[in-house]
Nucleic acid binder design. Structure first.
Lengths: 235, 235
DNA sequence: CTCACTTTGTGCACCGGTTCACAAAAGGAC
DNA sequence: GTCCTTTTGTGAACCGGTGCACAAAGTGAG
Protein backbone atom coordinates (compact mmCIF):
# COMPACT_ATOMS: atom_id res chain seq x y z
CA UNK A 1 0.00 0.00 0.00
CA UNK A 2 1.38 3.33 -1.01
CA UNK A 3 1.73 5.87 1.73
CA UNK A 4 0.25 9.15 0.62
CA UNK A 5 1.86 12.25 2.02
CA UNK A 6 -0.11 15.41 2.64
CA UNK A 7 0.42 16.92 -0.80
CA UNK A 8 0.57 15.16 -4.12
CA UNK A 9 4.11 14.07 -3.42
CA UNK A 10 4.39 10.43 -4.22
CA UNK A 11 8.00 10.03 -5.32
CA UNK A 12 8.41 11.09 -8.91
CA UNK A 13 9.68 14.56 -9.62
CA UNK A 14 9.81 15.40 -13.34
CA UNK A 15 13.31 15.41 -14.74
CA UNK A 16 12.88 18.94 -16.05
CA UNK A 17 12.04 20.10 -12.55
CA UNK A 18 15.07 18.40 -11.02
CA UNK A 19 17.30 20.19 -13.52
CA UNK A 20 15.93 23.54 -12.38
CA UNK A 21 16.06 23.03 -8.63
CA UNK A 22 19.79 23.87 -8.44
CA UNK A 23 18.99 27.10 -10.22
CA UNK A 24 16.37 28.04 -7.64
CA UNK A 25 18.73 27.06 -4.90
CA UNK A 26 21.40 29.39 -6.17
CA UNK A 27 18.96 32.28 -6.45
CA UNK A 28 17.63 31.57 -2.96
CA UNK A 29 21.10 31.53 -1.47
CA UNK A 30 21.75 34.93 -2.97
CA UNK A 31 18.54 36.20 -1.39
CA UNK A 32 19.36 34.69 1.99
CA UNK A 33 22.70 36.45 1.90
CA UNK A 34 20.96 39.72 1.22
CA UNK A 35 18.79 39.07 4.25
CA UNK A 36 15.46 38.42 2.56
CA UNK A 37 13.10 36.37 4.72
CA UNK A 38 10.39 35.55 2.20
CA UNK A 39 10.10 35.68 -1.55
CA UNK A 40 7.20 35.49 -3.99
CA UNK A 41 7.17 33.02 -6.86
CA UNK A 42 7.28 35.99 -9.19
CA UNK A 43 10.50 37.41 -7.73
CA UNK A 44 12.21 34.07 -7.45
CA UNK A 45 11.22 33.21 -10.99
CA UNK A 46 12.80 36.40 -12.29
CA UNK A 47 15.99 35.73 -10.34
CA UNK A 48 16.20 32.22 -11.74
CA UNK A 49 15.24 33.27 -15.24
CA UNK A 50 12.06 31.21 -15.57
CA UNK A 51 8.32 31.67 -15.82
CA UNK A 52 6.60 32.04 -12.44
CA UNK A 53 3.90 29.45 -13.13
CA UNK A 54 6.59 26.94 -13.96
CA UNK A 55 8.41 27.76 -10.76
CA UNK A 56 5.29 27.24 -8.66
CA UNK A 57 4.55 23.96 -10.37
CA UNK A 58 8.14 22.84 -9.81
CA UNK A 59 8.00 23.68 -6.12
CA UNK A 60 4.61 22.04 -5.75
CA UNK A 61 6.28 18.74 -6.64
CA UNK A 62 8.29 18.95 -3.44
CA UNK A 63 5.28 19.72 -1.30
CA UNK A 64 3.19 22.72 -0.39
CA UNK A 65 5.77 24.96 1.13
CA UNK A 66 4.40 28.37 0.24
CA UNK A 67 1.92 30.62 1.98
CA UNK A 68 -0.78 32.16 -0.17
CA UNK A 69 -0.78 35.89 -0.01
CA UNK A 70 2.79 35.86 1.31
CA UNK A 71 5.20 33.72 -0.66
CA UNK A 72 7.90 31.26 0.34
CA UNK A 73 10.13 31.33 3.40
CA UNK A 74 13.63 31.63 1.97
CA UNK A 75 15.50 29.56 4.55
CA UNK A 76 12.90 26.85 4.70
CA UNK A 77 12.82 26.52 0.94
CA UNK A 78 16.62 26.34 0.79
CA UNK A 79 16.45 23.51 3.28
CA UNK A 80 13.74 21.62 1.42
CA UNK A 81 15.39 21.91 -1.98
CA UNK A 82 18.78 20.96 -0.56
CA UNK A 83 17.33 17.91 1.06
CA UNK A 84 15.46 16.89 -2.04
CA UNK A 85 18.62 17.18 -4.12
CA UNK A 86 20.57 15.24 -1.54
CA UNK A 87 22.89 18.10 -0.67
CA UNK A 88 22.45 17.75 3.06
CA UNK A 89 24.84 14.85 2.93
CA UNK A 90 28.40 15.01 1.67
CA UNK A 91 29.35 13.31 -1.58
CA UNK A 92 32.82 12.02 -2.28
CA UNK A 93 33.81 12.71 -5.87
CA UNK A 94 36.77 11.25 -7.74
CA UNK A 95 38.21 13.01 -10.77
CA UNK A 96 39.84 10.70 -13.29
CA UNK A 97 42.17 12.36 -15.76
CA UNK A 98 44.28 15.21 -14.50
CA UNK A 99 44.95 17.10 -17.69
CA UNK A 100 44.06 20.74 -18.14
CA UNK A 101 40.41 20.13 -17.59
CA UNK A 102 40.82 17.78 -14.65
CA UNK A 103 43.07 20.30 -12.96
CA UNK A 104 40.54 23.05 -13.52
CA UNK A 105 37.78 20.91 -12.07
CA UNK A 106 39.87 20.00 -9.05
CA UNK A 107 40.35 23.67 -8.30
CA UNK A 108 36.81 24.70 -9.12
CA UNK A 109 35.26 26.21 -6.03
CA UNK A 110 31.69 25.50 -7.07
CA UNK A 111 32.15 21.80 -6.33
CA UNK A 112 33.13 22.08 -2.73
CA UNK A 113 30.57 24.77 -2.04
CA UNK A 114 27.59 22.39 -1.97
CA UNK A 115 28.07 19.04 -0.35
CA UNK A 116 30.62 17.84 -2.89
CA UNK A 117 34.14 16.95 -1.82
CA UNK A 118 36.87 16.01 -4.27
CA UNK A 119 38.19 12.90 -2.57
CA UNK A 120 40.62 11.64 -5.18
CA UNK A 121 42.51 12.56 -8.33
CA UNK A 122 43.69 9.78 -10.61
CA UNK A 123 45.74 9.65 -13.79
CA UNK A 124 47.63 7.15 -15.91
CA UNK A 125 50.56 9.41 -16.76
CA UNK A 126 53.55 8.76 -14.44
CA UNK A 127 54.60 12.38 -15.03
CA UNK A 128 51.45 13.57 -13.29
CA UNK A 129 51.07 10.91 -10.61
CA UNK A 130 52.45 12.22 -7.34
CA UNK A 131 51.73 15.87 -8.12
CA UNK A 132 49.85 17.85 -5.51
CA UNK A 133 46.82 19.65 -6.86
CA UNK A 134 44.22 21.44 -4.80
CA UNK A 135 45.64 19.81 -1.69
CA UNK A 136 45.38 16.31 -3.09
CA UNK A 137 47.93 13.80 -4.18
CA UNK A 138 47.42 12.50 -7.71
CA UNK A 139 47.23 8.72 -7.59
CA UNK A 140 47.87 6.14 -10.27
CA UNK A 141 44.92 4.77 -12.18
CA UNK A 142 45.87 1.29 -11.04
CA UNK A 143 44.61 2.33 -7.64
CA UNK A 144 41.18 3.24 -9.06
CA UNK A 145 39.13 0.45 -7.50
CA UNK A 146 40.93 0.57 -4.17
CA UNK A 147 40.58 4.35 -3.88
CA UNK A 148 36.90 4.34 -4.78
CA UNK A 149 36.14 1.71 -2.17
CA UNK A 150 38.36 3.09 0.54
CA UNK A 151 37.09 6.67 0.31
CA UNK A 152 33.46 5.85 -0.37
CA UNK A 153 33.42 7.62 -3.71
CA UNK A 154 29.95 7.58 -5.22
CA UNK A 155 30.31 10.03 -8.10
CA UNK A 156 33.07 9.86 -10.68
CA UNK A 157 34.05 12.70 -12.99
CA UNK A 158 35.67 11.58 -16.23
CA UNK A 159 38.11 14.09 -17.68
CA UNK A 160 40.24 11.59 -19.58
CA UNK A 161 41.01 11.51 -23.29
CA UNK A 162 38.20 10.05 -25.38
CA UNK A 163 39.92 6.72 -25.89
CA UNK A 164 40.35 5.98 -22.19
CA UNK A 165 36.88 7.00 -21.07
CA UNK A 166 34.93 3.82 -21.81
CA UNK A 167 37.55 1.67 -20.15
CA UNK A 168 37.53 3.77 -17.00
CA UNK A 169 33.74 3.83 -17.02
CA UNK A 170 33.63 0.03 -17.16
CA UNK A 171 35.97 -0.20 -14.20
CA UNK A 172 34.17 2.27 -11.96
CA UNK A 173 30.81 0.71 -12.77
CA UNK A 174 32.26 -2.68 -11.85
CA UNK A 175 33.14 -1.36 -8.38
CA UNK A 176 29.60 -0.16 -7.91
CA UNK A 177 29.64 3.50 -8.96
CA UNK A 178 26.32 4.47 -10.54
CA UNK A 179 26.78 8.19 -11.21
CA UNK A 180 29.19 9.52 -13.79
CA UNK A 181 29.81 13.02 -15.07
CA UNK A 182 31.51 12.62 -18.43
CA UNK A 183 33.59 15.33 -20.09
CA UNK A 184 35.17 13.01 -22.65
CA UNK A 185 33.75 13.38 -26.16
CA UNK A 186 32.43 9.84 -26.49
CA UNK A 187 29.10 8.10 -26.06
CA UNK A 188 29.63 5.85 -23.08
CA UNK A 189 27.78 2.60 -22.87
CA UNK A 190 26.88 1.53 -19.37
CA UNK A 191 24.44 -0.93 -17.86
CA UNK A 192 20.88 -0.03 -16.91
CA UNK A 193 20.71 1.86 -13.65
CA UNK A 194 23.88 3.86 -14.09
CA UNK A 195 23.30 7.58 -14.54
CA UNK A 196 25.51 9.48 -16.91
CA UNK A 197 25.55 13.18 -17.51
CA UNK A 198 27.60 14.48 -20.36
CA UNK A 199 29.19 17.87 -20.77
CA UNK A 200 30.63 18.47 -24.18
CA UNK A 201 32.26 21.81 -24.79
CA UNK A 202 32.67 21.35 -28.49
CA UNK A 203 29.02 20.43 -28.97
CA UNK A 204 27.90 23.59 -27.20
CA UNK A 205 30.02 25.66 -29.56
CA UNK A 206 28.64 23.85 -32.57
CA UNK A 207 25.10 24.63 -31.51
CA UNK A 208 26.01 28.27 -31.12
CA UNK A 209 27.65 28.25 -34.55
CA UNK A 210 24.46 26.90 -36.08
CA UNK A 211 22.39 29.74 -34.72
CA UNK A 212 25.05 32.29 -35.48
CA UNK A 213 25.16 31.17 -39.10
CA UNK A 214 21.43 31.36 -39.28
CA UNK A 215 21.38 34.90 -37.98
CA UNK A 216 24.06 35.84 -40.51
CA UNK A 217 22.03 34.28 -43.35
CA UNK A 218 18.96 36.19 -42.34
CA UNK A 219 20.90 39.46 -42.34
CA UNK A 220 22.28 39.13 -45.83
CA UNK A 221 20.38 36.94 -48.26
CA UNK A 222 17.23 36.16 -46.41
CA UNK A 223 15.05 33.23 -47.38
CA UNK A 224 14.79 34.30 -51.00
CA UNK A 225 18.41 33.80 -52.00
CA UNK A 226 19.67 30.45 -50.73
CA UNK A 227 21.30 29.20 -53.89
CA UNK A 228 23.75 27.78 -51.41
CA UNK A 229 22.28 24.46 -52.41
CA UNK A 230 23.79 23.35 -55.69
CA UNK A 231 20.82 21.17 -56.54
CA UNK A 232 21.32 17.50 -55.72
CA UNK A 233 25.06 17.13 -55.79
CA UNK A 234 25.82 13.46 -56.07
CA UNK A 235 29.09 11.77 -55.23
CA UNK B 1 5.77 33.66 -51.03
CA UNK B 2 7.77 30.94 -49.45
CA UNK B 3 10.21 29.12 -51.65
CA UNK B 4 9.81 25.39 -51.24
CA UNK B 5 12.93 23.30 -51.70
CA UNK B 6 12.77 19.75 -53.06
CA UNK B 7 12.23 18.10 -49.70
CA UNK B 8 10.25 19.41 -46.77
CA UNK B 9 13.13 21.66 -45.86
CA UNK B 10 11.74 25.12 -45.33
CA UNK B 11 14.12 26.63 -42.80
CA UNK B 12 13.28 25.50 -39.32
CA UNK B 13 15.18 22.59 -37.84
CA UNK B 14 13.89 21.58 -34.40
CA UNK B 15 16.17 22.65 -31.58
CA UNK B 16 16.39 19.09 -30.30
CA UNK B 17 17.64 17.98 -33.68
CA UNK B 18 20.29 20.68 -33.85
CA UNK B 19 21.61 19.55 -30.48
CA UNK B 20 22.09 16.04 -31.81
CA UNK B 21 23.70 16.85 -35.14
CA UNK B 22 27.16 17.31 -33.57
CA UNK B 23 26.77 13.86 -32.07
CA UNK B 24 26.05 12.29 -35.44
CA UNK B 25 28.92 14.22 -36.93
CA UNK B 26 31.35 12.80 -34.42
CA UNK B 27 30.14 9.26 -34.98
CA UNK B 28 30.37 9.73 -38.74
CA UNK B 29 33.91 11.04 -38.52
CA UNK B 30 34.90 7.95 -36.62
CA UNK B 31 33.36 5.80 -39.33
CA UNK B 32 35.04 7.74 -42.11
CA UNK B 33 38.37 7.18 -40.40
CA UNK B 34 37.69 3.48 -40.29
CA UNK B 35 37.04 3.59 -44.00
CA UNK B 36 33.29 2.96 -44.03
CA UNK B 37 31.62 4.27 -47.17
CA UNK B 38 27.97 3.96 -46.21
CA UNK B 39 26.08 3.48 -42.98
CA UNK B 40 22.52 2.53 -42.11
CA UNK B 41 20.40 4.61 -39.78
CA UNK B 42 20.44 1.69 -37.38
CA UNK B 43 24.23 1.53 -37.12
CA UNK B 44 24.67 5.26 -36.93
CA UNK B 45 21.99 5.48 -34.28
CA UNK B 46 23.77 2.92 -32.13
CA UNK B 47 27.07 4.76 -32.52
CA UNK B 48 25.46 8.03 -31.50
CA UNK B 49 23.45 6.47 -28.71
CA UNK B 50 19.98 7.34 -30.00
CA UNK B 51 16.91 5.61 -31.40
CA UNK B 52 17.10 4.95 -35.14
CA UNK B 53 13.70 6.42 -35.94
CA UNK B 54 14.74 9.62 -34.25
CA UNK B 55 17.95 9.69 -36.22
CA UNK B 56 16.12 9.28 -39.50
CA UNK B 57 13.67 12.01 -38.63
CA UNK B 58 16.53 14.29 -37.63
CA UNK B 59 18.35 13.73 -40.91
CA UNK B 60 15.16 14.15 -42.88
CA UNK B 61 15.03 17.74 -41.65
CA UNK B 62 18.22 18.46 -43.57
CA UNK B 63 16.94 16.89 -46.76
CA UNK B 64 16.58 13.45 -48.21
CA UNK B 65 20.17 12.28 -48.24
CA UNK B 66 19.74 8.55 -47.74
CA UNK B 67 19.20 5.75 -50.21
CA UNK B 68 16.50 3.25 -49.37
CA UNK B 69 17.80 -0.26 -49.10
CA UNK B 70 21.37 1.05 -48.74
CA UNK B 71 21.79 3.74 -46.12
CA UNK B 72 23.65 7.02 -46.04
CA UNK B 73 26.90 7.92 -47.76
CA UNK B 74 29.26 8.71 -44.90
CA UNK B 75 31.30 11.47 -46.56
CA UNK B 76 28.30 13.16 -48.08
CA UNK B 77 26.44 13.16 -44.78
CA UNK B 78 29.47 14.59 -42.99
CA UNK B 79 29.53 17.39 -45.51
CA UNK B 80 25.82 18.11 -45.25
CA UNK B 81 25.76 18.16 -41.46
CA UNK B 82 28.91 20.27 -41.29
CA UNK B 83 27.43 22.77 -43.66
CA UNK B 84 24.15 22.89 -41.79
CA UNK B 85 25.93 23.50 -38.53
CA UNK B 86 28.07 26.17 -40.10
CA UNK B 87 31.33 24.33 -39.59
CA UNK B 88 32.53 24.81 -43.12
CA UNK B 89 33.48 28.32 -42.17
CA UNK B 90 35.91 29.27 -39.47
CA UNK B 91 34.70 30.90 -36.28
CA UNK B 92 36.84 33.22 -34.19
CA UNK B 93 36.25 32.63 -30.50
CA UNK B 94 37.39 34.83 -27.62
CA UNK B 95 37.79 33.40 -24.14
CA UNK B 96 37.26 35.91 -21.35
CA UNK B 97 38.63 34.93 -17.97
CA UNK B 98 41.90 33.03 -17.91
CA UNK B 99 41.63 31.21 -14.61
CA UNK B 100 41.92 27.46 -14.33
CA UNK B 101 38.92 26.88 -16.51
CA UNK B 102 39.80 29.48 -19.13
CA UNK B 103 43.25 27.99 -19.41
CA UNK B 104 41.84 24.51 -19.83
CA UNK B 105 39.47 25.73 -22.53
CA UNK B 106 42.27 27.52 -24.36
CA UNK B 107 44.24 24.28 -24.50
CA UNK B 108 41.25 22.07 -25.28
CA UNK B 109 41.85 20.40 -28.62
CA UNK B 110 38.19 19.80 -29.36
CA UNK B 111 37.68 23.46 -30.11
CA UNK B 112 40.18 23.84 -32.86
CA UNK B 113 39.26 20.52 -34.40
CA UNK B 114 36.04 21.76 -35.97
CA UNK B 115 36.08 25.19 -37.46
CA UNK B 116 36.66 26.98 -34.17
CA UNK B 117 39.74 29.07 -33.60
CA UNK B 118 40.59 30.66 -30.28
CA UNK B 119 41.44 34.15 -31.45
CA UNK B 120 41.87 35.94 -28.13
CA UNK B 121 42.31 35.44 -24.42
CA UNK B 122 41.35 38.26 -22.09
CA UNK B 123 41.57 38.80 -18.35
CA UNK B 124 41.37 41.61 -15.82
CA UNK B 125 44.17 40.41 -13.57
CA UNK B 126 47.47 42.19 -14.36
CA UNK B 127 49.29 39.10 -13.07
CA UNK B 128 47.86 37.06 -15.91
CA UNK B 129 47.86 39.66 -18.69
CA UNK B 130 50.90 39.13 -20.87
CA UNK B 131 51.16 35.41 -20.22
CA UNK B 132 51.43 33.14 -23.20
CA UNK B 133 48.91 30.32 -23.22
CA UNK B 134 48.28 27.94 -26.07
CA UNK B 135 50.30 30.20 -28.33
CA UNK B 136 48.30 33.28 -27.50
CA UNK B 137 49.11 36.43 -25.59
CA UNK B 138 46.65 37.17 -22.78
CA UNK B 139 45.30 40.67 -23.28
CA UNK B 140 43.77 43.11 -20.84
CA UNK B 141 40.02 43.23 -20.57
CA UNK B 142 40.16 46.93 -21.43
CA UNK B 143 40.99 45.82 -24.95
CA UNK B 144 37.80 43.71 -25.13
CA UNK B 145 35.89 45.78 -27.67
CA UNK B 146 38.93 46.52 -29.82
CA UNK B 147 40.01 42.89 -29.92
CA UNK B 148 36.55 41.61 -30.79
CA UNK B 149 36.22 44.04 -33.65
CA UNK B 150 39.75 43.68 -34.95
CA UNK B 151 39.77 39.87 -35.02
CA UNK B 152 36.20 39.38 -36.13
CA UNK B 153 35.23 37.45 -33.01
CA UNK B 154 31.64 36.22 -33.22
CA UNK B 155 31.46 33.80 -30.30
CA UNK B 156 32.52 34.68 -26.77
CA UNK B 157 33.23 32.14 -24.05
CA UNK B 158 32.76 33.48 -20.53
CA UNK B 159 34.96 31.81 -17.95
CA UNK B 160 35.05 34.72 -15.52
CA UNK B 161 34.00 34.76 -11.87
CA UNK B 162 30.25 35.02 -11.40
CA UNK B 163 30.35 38.68 -10.45
CA UNK B 164 32.13 39.81 -13.60
CA UNK B 165 30.09 37.79 -16.08
CA UNK B 166 27.09 40.07 -16.54
CA UNK B 167 29.28 43.10 -17.03
CA UNK B 168 31.39 41.38 -19.67
CA UNK B 169 28.25 40.05 -21.34
CA UNK B 170 26.85 43.57 -21.59
CA UNK B 171 30.05 44.81 -23.18
CA UNK B 172 30.36 42.06 -25.78
CA UNK B 173 26.71 42.36 -26.70
CA UNK B 174 27.21 46.08 -27.15
CA UNK B 175 29.94 45.43 -29.75
CA UNK B 176 27.59 43.15 -31.65
CA UNK B 177 28.37 39.65 -30.37
CA UNK B 178 25.22 37.52 -30.39
CA UNK B 179 26.53 34.12 -29.28
CA UNK B 180 27.81 33.46 -25.78
CA UNK B 181 28.89 30.27 -24.06
CA UNK B 182 28.66 30.94 -20.35
CA UNK B 183 30.54 28.96 -17.71
CA UNK B 184 29.93 31.45 -14.93
CA UNK B 185 27.30 30.36 -12.42
CA UNK B 186 24.87 33.22 -13.00
CA UNK B 187 21.73 33.80 -15.00
CA UNK B 188 22.76 36.33 -17.60
CA UNK B 189 20.26 38.79 -18.90
CA UNK B 190 20.74 39.76 -22.52
CA UNK B 191 18.60 41.40 -25.17
CA UNK B 192 16.37 39.45 -27.53
CA UNK B 193 18.28 37.85 -30.35
CA UNK B 194 21.39 37.00 -28.36
CA UNK B 195 21.93 33.27 -27.93
CA UNK B 196 23.33 32.03 -24.67
CA UNK B 197 24.31 28.51 -23.80
CA UNK B 198 25.17 27.76 -20.24
CA UNK B 199 27.42 25.06 -18.87
CA UNK B 200 27.26 24.69 -15.14
CA UNK B 201 29.45 22.04 -13.61
CA UNK B 202 27.97 22.30 -10.16
CA UNK B 203 24.42 21.90 -11.47
CA UNK B 204 25.34 18.71 -13.28
CA UNK B 205 26.73 17.29 -10.07
CA UNK B 206 23.64 18.27 -8.14
CA UNK B 207 21.43 16.46 -10.62
CA UNK B 208 23.57 13.35 -10.26
CA UNK B 209 23.38 13.64 -6.50
CA UNK B 210 19.60 13.72 -6.68
CA UNK B 211 19.43 10.47 -8.60
CA UNK B 212 22.15 8.90 -6.52
CA UNK B 213 20.25 9.68 -3.33
CA UNK B 214 17.13 8.24 -4.84
CA UNK B 215 18.85 5.00 -5.74
CA UNK B 216 20.24 4.79 -2.20
CA UNK B 217 16.77 5.38 -0.71
CA UNK B 218 15.29 2.64 -2.83
CA UNK B 219 17.99 0.21 -1.69
CA UNK B 220 17.49 0.70 2.01
CA UNK B 221 14.12 1.92 3.19
CA UNK B 222 12.07 1.75 0.07
CA UNK B 223 8.83 3.70 -0.26
CA UNK B 224 7.40 2.30 2.97
CA UNK B 225 9.80 3.92 5.42
CA UNK B 226 10.16 7.61 4.59
CA UNK B 227 9.70 9.06 8.01
CA UNK B 228 12.38 11.43 6.76
CA UNK B 229 9.65 13.99 6.79
CA UNK B 230 9.09 15.22 10.32
CA UNK B 231 5.46 16.16 9.68
CA UNK B 232 4.92 19.80 8.86
CA UNK B 233 7.83 21.49 10.51
CA UNK B 234 7.03 25.15 10.77
CA UNK B 235 9.47 27.91 11.39
C1' DC C 1 -16.79 40.03 10.71
C1' DT C 2 -16.46 41.60 6.17
C1' DC C 3 -14.17 43.26 2.27
C1' DA C 4 -10.27 44.04 -0.63
C1' DC C 5 -5.99 42.46 -1.93
C1' DT C 6 -2.15 39.27 -2.59
C1' DT C 7 -0.13 35.08 -3.99
C1' DT C 8 -0.18 30.12 -4.16
C1' DG C 9 -1.45 25.66 -6.23
C1' DT C 10 -3.44 23.45 -10.20
C1' DG C 11 -6.88 22.09 -14.10
C1' DC C 12 -6.63 22.36 -18.78
C1' DA C 13 -5.35 23.31 -23.40
C1' DC C 14 -1.44 23.34 -26.06
C1' DC C 15 3.12 22.19 -28.13
C1' DG C 16 7.45 20.19 -29.28
C1' DG C 17 9.46 15.99 -29.47
C1' DT C 18 9.60 10.77 -29.39
C1' DT C 19 8.39 6.34 -30.94
C1' DC C 20 5.95 2.93 -33.50
C1' DA C 21 4.84 0.96 -37.52
C1' DC C 22 4.39 0.89 -42.31
C1' DA C 23 4.20 2.31 -47.17
C1' DA C 24 7.44 3.70 -50.63
C1' DA C 25 11.79 3.22 -52.80
C1' DA C 26 15.98 1.13 -54.00
C1' DG C 27 19.01 -2.96 -55.07
C1' DG C 28 19.97 -7.66 -56.35
C1' DA C 29 18.89 -12.39 -57.94
C1' DC C 30 17.11 -14.91 -61.46
C1' DG D 1 10.84 -7.86 -66.20
C1' DT D 2 9.19 -9.99 -61.41
C1' DC D 3 10.01 -11.11 -56.78
C1' DC D 4 12.37 -10.71 -52.47
C1' DT D 5 15.14 -8.14 -49.22
C1' DT D 6 16.72 -4.06 -47.15
C1' DT D 7 16.27 0.39 -45.40
C1' DT D 8 14.53 5.03 -45.72
C1' DG D 9 11.10 8.67 -44.84
C1' DT D 10 6.95 9.86 -42.48
C1' DG D 11 1.91 9.68 -40.70
C1' DA D 12 -0.12 9.28 -36.46
C1' DA D 13 -0.50 8.24 -31.61
C1' DC D 14 1.59 9.31 -27.55
C1' DC D 15 4.07 11.71 -23.77
C1' DG D 16 6.32 15.03 -20.95
C1' DG D 17 6.48 19.64 -20.18
C1' DT D 18 4.77 24.66 -20.54
C1' DG D 19 1.89 28.46 -19.58
C1' DC D 20 -2.57 30.54 -19.03
C1' DA D 21 -5.94 31.64 -16.10
C1' DC D 22 -8.52 31.00 -12.06
C1' DA D 23 -10.31 29.15 -7.68
C1' DA D 24 -8.66 28.56 -3.08
C1' DA D 25 -6.25 30.26 0.78
C1' DG D 26 -4.10 33.41 3.23
C1' DT D 27 -3.22 38.62 5.10
C1' DG D 28 -4.55 43.03 6.71
C1' DA D 29 -7.59 47.17 7.23
C1' DG D 30 -11.55 48.96 9.05
Amino acid sequence: MIRRLSQARERGIPEATVARLPLYLRALNGMAERGLATVSSEDLAVAAGVNSAKLRKDLSHLGSYGTRGVGYDVEYLIYQISRELGLTQDWAVAIVGVGNLGRALANYGGFVSRGFRVAALLDADPEVVGDHIAGLNVEHIDELEAVIRRRGVSIVVLATPALAAQQVADRVVAVGVTSILNFAPVVLSVPEGVDIRKVDLSIELQILAFHEQRKADRMSGGPAMAEEWPEAVDL
